[in-house]
Design a binder for these strands. Structure first.
Lengths: 363, 363
DNA sequence: TTGTAAGCGTTATCAG
DNA sequence: CTGATAACGCTTACAA
């Protein structure tokens, strides 16, 4: 007696064939009706109606794997992050970006598949590759964070898989990406400070050499190079200070020394820890000074959550939701037209805040 | 001139057949070697080595779509919420639950598909029904929030689709669910208050008749029924007050009136707005009283984000991440064994806080 | 206007 | 131990 074939998990899932039987048509017709009949093939309205009714009755939903295998598409967009997409440590979470991704994806009729790279065994060679390969189930994929292993990603891209990286990533030739325009936003902050009357300002960077950090420094230097700021910034030590241990190096006396040199504005960048900004605020406080009365402060990015209650820093906000939405737009452009030519840079919004004002009159 | 068939994204990707040719074996053998040979079929080590080498050389990576199609499962867990999965209004977001869902899903080798109720063509059709059917794309699905339409959900479940509801949902026969054990947690709070010496306490409910609210009231009454609390709570007006407009009804004079009746502890439940708790805190404040010196306060749940800075309320926390993880466990049990018999109730952790203490000595 | 049939890349079943 | 061969559910020429 022949064994019953292994009961597949797919058990109750209705397929096109069953819809076809119920509607009294062929499976092909069901496919035509249900996939929107892109071929422009003429279908009898009654047939169409019967098929739709049958599908509704059976609760039919297409199998994404089969759809994809048959060389069509899934209408699934992948979101891959090497670390957990929803970290327990809410601090540097992708949540705000995902808000934008979801909105834009929904608006365009895509569902989202979350591929979380197992953070386990990052050492092994084949490990990362296999992880990344899963995303092929989706029509295209968004990649989050700069920890996405470059090599497997490159292979994906080389083989023509539609991928968009969120955050600048131009080391990989041919990989599309969207990122915040840190350089322009930083330059804008410098210009605003200059407009307030500041002539000498200093940027405090952490030694972390993230791409975003490089961009900010570039924007900072570029804006300093404009007009009379150029001359002013030539004097004294460089306008950019890179510190390994902000809390130890950025002290009250350090601040006083800079003030004595004629610096009137201090700028720090947002990082995971915001150590530089924290140090700056603490040092100013310790020196018995107040912003914006005695000096001006600006933060290139958003303050950390635990400082949310304090005075809103002058600076800019990265439009994270917009970043996610832009990524989805770029990806869908890749999917449909095959080429996205819109700028990958998303502008940041200047935030007036309350830590910058005109420099105090020279003593 | 015949059009080239639509260029498949599949472009130069190596397949098992090519690996087989290179290794000089059959494609079946390649599949056996590469998929770990779960069948336990004996393979010659040399063959194995040759296949692996060929695969490596070609940079072979299995096509997840094909793999899943053949295996009759796609290792996808759906997450459906009627409202957006990532609400812009972060206040009552599912984030903490998703943290647990993701962790557990990753640990079990599943990927997540996010569906949103709003995702459908917002136009006509079966409305929620058609919407819900889309989840069939995943092997099983988690449902979030009590706004999931009951009827389509019932059909899904009746047809054997593996579904787990997060939050109690026993109106639907056969629907698996996991939920916080509000009754037990509330009873625990009452017991703690009793242990501190409180004999008469009152629960302030909002008129919203959520299941969670019912559970809490049940737990409250049950715990009151124990020991001498029973006698004490028999006197005066009932121990449970249900108010339509907390801000208007829970006033300083209301609090004083209760105190005069011998009530020494006030309990409110967490809701979306936390209106009852806010009203209670405001009323106590307006009466010039302080907790825990003059009376005790307890909050059945977590305080809203904007009150996070204030004194931590005594009460309990719903382990949201654990809830998500439990839901995933239940769902995967449904998927693999076909039956989950673990308790659907997740215990809540008592939170000592600082708003409860011994009742003041009687005047 | 509808049906037939040939794959898509993999897994699973058997007979060698 | 290996290799045909048949699904898996769907799309898409092409035939009727």
């Amino acid at each position: 007696m022949a064994e019953q074939p292994v009961a597949k998990a797919r058990r109750g899932r209705p397929r096109q064939a069953e819809v076809a039987r119920l509607a009294g048509v062929s499976q092909t017709t069901v496919s035509l009706v249900l996939s929107g009949n892109k071929q422009g093939i003429a279908l009898h309205p009654d047939t169409r109606a019967r098929v739709l009714e049958a599908a509704r009755q059976l609760g039919y939903a297409p199998d994404p794997a089969a759809r994809r295998l048959a060389a069509a598409r899934n209408d699934l967009l992948g979101v891959f992050s090497f670390t957990a997409t929803f970290p327990t440590d809410v601090a540097h979470s992708y949540y705000p970006i995902l808000v934008g991704v979801e909105q834009e994806a929904v608006a365009r009729g895509y569902d989202l598949v979350l591929f979380t790279g197992s953070s386990a065994a990052p050492g092994r060679g084949g490990g990362g590759a296999a992880e990344l390969n899963r995303v092929r189930l989706a029509d295209g994929c968004l990649f989050l964070g700069r920890h996405v292993p470059a090599d497997p990603l490159r292979r994906l891209v080389e083989q023509g898989y539609p991928a968009v990286h969120i955050g600048r990533r131009d080391e990989l030739e041919g990989l599309a990406w969207v990122g915040a325009d840190y350089a322009a936003a930083t330059a804008e902050v410098v210009r605003r400070l200059a407009a307030l009357g500041h002539r000498r300002m200093v940027l405090v960077c952490e030694s972390d050499q993230a791409l975003a950090s490089v961009d900010r420094e570039r924007g900072f230097r570029a804006a300093l190079g404009e007009g009379e700021l150029a001359r002013a910034s030539d004097a004294g030590p460089g306008p950019v200070v890179r510190v390994a241990d902000p809390a130890a190096e950025i002290t009250a006396s350090w601040v006083r020394a800079r003030l004595a040199e004629g610096v009137t504005a201090f700028v720090a960048e947002e990082t995971d820890t915001c150590a530089a900004w924290r140090a700056l605020v603490a040092a100013v406080d310790a020196a018995g000074l107040t912003a914006p009365a005695d000096l001006s402060l600006a933060l290139l990015g958003a303050p950390p959550a635990d400082l949310a209650g304090r005075t809103e820093p002058t600076g800019f906000d990265v439009p994270k939701a917009e970043l996610g939405a832009a990524a989805v737009r770029t990806l869908t452009a890749l999917l449909t037209e095959g080429g996205a030519d819109c700028s990958p840079l998303v502008p940041c919004a200047f935030r007036s805040g309350h830590t910058a004002g005109p420099p105090p009159p020279a003593p």
